[in-house]
Amino acid sequence: MTDSDHTTRRTFLGLAGGAAASGLVPIVTVRTADATPAMLSSAIRNIVGEANVRTGKVKLDIPPLVENGNTVPMTVSVDSPMTADNYVKSIHVFNEKNPQPNIGNFYLRPGAGRAQVSTRIRLADSQKVTAIARLSDDTFWSVTADVVVTLAACTEEAI
């Protein structure tokens, strides 16, 4: 009895899983204008290659709630002494749901003194923003922040 129970449960789960997977396909095709999580991870892979990305060291200052997605202030700083043999080589910022997953790449030198970069970005939707830092020993560190956007960028009509 227990055996047949297991079978039905497994069959049911298998079917449900299959349905969920096929159910995803139309959603993806409808939202081709958005960067998908797959595009985000391939954009990150382009930068980090096969290396491990660890969480920590990086700080991302971005408002959690923004009214206007057309200009969102953002500051990325990395905990680094910025000496000749221990410094931040580059900082890469990515988003999840804009039409394109990249936001910017910033390349630093040990002489920077402080590993910190600020700029203003566009966000097309409420989403996650990820910053990844590459240190001089070629390790990668990341941080992710959630941002809620009231007025989306990119989608409005040009006049």
Binding site: P99, Q116, S118
Partner: peptide, 17 residues
């Protein structure tokens, strides 16, 4: 810096040296 369309109009960039 490499900039993408996700950088806001009138690019404002600050850094240290």
């Amino acid at each position: 810096a490499d900039l993408y369309p996700a950088i806001a109009a009138n690019p404002f960039i600050t850094f240290f040296t």
